[in-house]
Every structure is written in structure tokens, then in C-alpha cells.
Amino acid sequence: MTALTLRLELRRSRMIALWLGVIAVAYSAIIGAMYPIILDNAAAIEDYMKIFPEALMAAFGMTGSLADPGVFFSTYIGTFLWPLIAAIAAIFLATRPVAADVERGWSDLALGTPLGRVRWLVASIAAQVLVLAALAAVTVAGVVVVGLVVGAAFDVGRFAAAAVILWLFASAVAGIASVVGAVTLSRGIAAGITAAILIAMYLANVVAQLQPDIAWLADVGFFKYLATTELVDAGMVPWASVAVFVVTAIVGWAASLAVFARRDLLA
């Protein structure tokens, strides 16, 4: 029954995965194709970048030369495209079983069968994990494949590792959205709260980098940990990022399972 529900959840995720995947691949492929141009004009671009305050550049992830694959990837994908794609996909997928399906009454039908609440939600979480992994993979693949075609010397293994970090970030967002959805049983409210949390984290990260005396603010959010530059450039695995994202995702999903299994299902 769990496998059957997982298949259904994956099937229900096809359209959002397709459209977000197309957007991610198209954007990342264009960015990948631009890399040789950036590489050829690195000196001129760096001169141009000097007109911006260093802190502002740091706030938006542009620390170092765009000619470095890691900086290039973090700037255009890691801190720009992926948070948007991940937030949309994670919130949509994670609030579906615990909120949207309760609101529309589908959970009454599914849970009117011998399938228990925990197995129903576990199947849905498994679908979230797979779909978010697929989106992270195609996003990175768009940059890497097109980059290699146009002659960029990308390290495929390091980019694959970066895709894992992106995936873990999205999973952490899904964990938060899932527990908020299980508490509120409202997709609209859960999406709003999760989006507000992400925006607050993003602003905290930006402000923390612009104001060194409140640099600690960056520690309370995810965006400090969405760091792929050194991973791509130097092969250094950001274990702190892995830990933060994995723990958040697992705690979020586990909490949503605990809440969903015990609460009244009333839309």
C-alpha cells in the first residue's frame, strides 16, 4: 500500500516537477553556456564588480572571481535560482498531504482504506525526497552538461556533490513546510509561514554580511549554509551545511509525522 501511494504521489508530482525542471534546466543551461564568455572576460568583469561595495557582493554570494566555477555556480544557481525552485517545489509538495489533501477531502478517502496515517505520510515524504533530488540533479546537470559542451573545465564530481547540498537544502525547507502544514492543516497558511521563514532567513543572511557586528544573524538561517563555492572550487565538503540541512529535514518530517498521526483531521 505504501508503494502504491508513493507511485501515486510521484505521479501527482509530475507536472510541477516537469515545469520547474524545464525552467531550471533552461536557466542553468543558459548560465552554463555563458561561462566561457565570463572566463574570457574575467578581468573586465572583476574591474566592473569593484564599483560595488564588497559587503553587498558578499551578501549576494559573489565572493571571489566569477571565473572560478564555484563562485560562478553559487552566484547564478546556488544563491539565486535554486532557492526559488526549491522553495516552490518543497512548499508545494510538503503541504500537499498534510494540508491540501485534508482541505479537499482526499485524505478522508485514502485514510478510509487500511492505509494508516503514518504510512500515508511516509509515502508522501519519500515522494518529496525523490522529486527534490530530481530537480536538484537536472538543475546542476543543465550547467554542467552545457558548460562541458562549450568547453568549460567543470569537475563533474564536485558539481554532483553541490547538487546534493542543493537537494538537502530543499529537503530542509520541505521538512519545515511539512510540520507547519501538519499543525495548521491549511496549505495557504503553511505556505505563507514557510515562505516568511525563508525570506526572514535570507534577509538575516544579507544583513549579517552587511553589518559585521550582527554577523551572528546569519547563523540562524539556512542561507549561510547554502555554500557550494568551496565544494566546487576546492572539493571541501561543507559538513556543517550537511548537518544543518539533514537535521532540519529529519526533525521537520518526524515532527510532522508525530503531529499528523495524533491530530484531528478537520479542514
Binding site: R12, D101, R104, G105, W106, D108, L109, G112
Partner: peptide, 9 residues
């Protein structure tokens, strides 16, 4: 079980 307004997909 059958509800009065089943929430089919």
C-alpha cells in the same frame, strides 16, 4: 466509506 462530497483528485 462514502462521504457526502468525496474529495477526489
Amino acid at each position: 466509506h462514502l462521504g457526502s462530497d468525496p474529495g477526489y483528485l
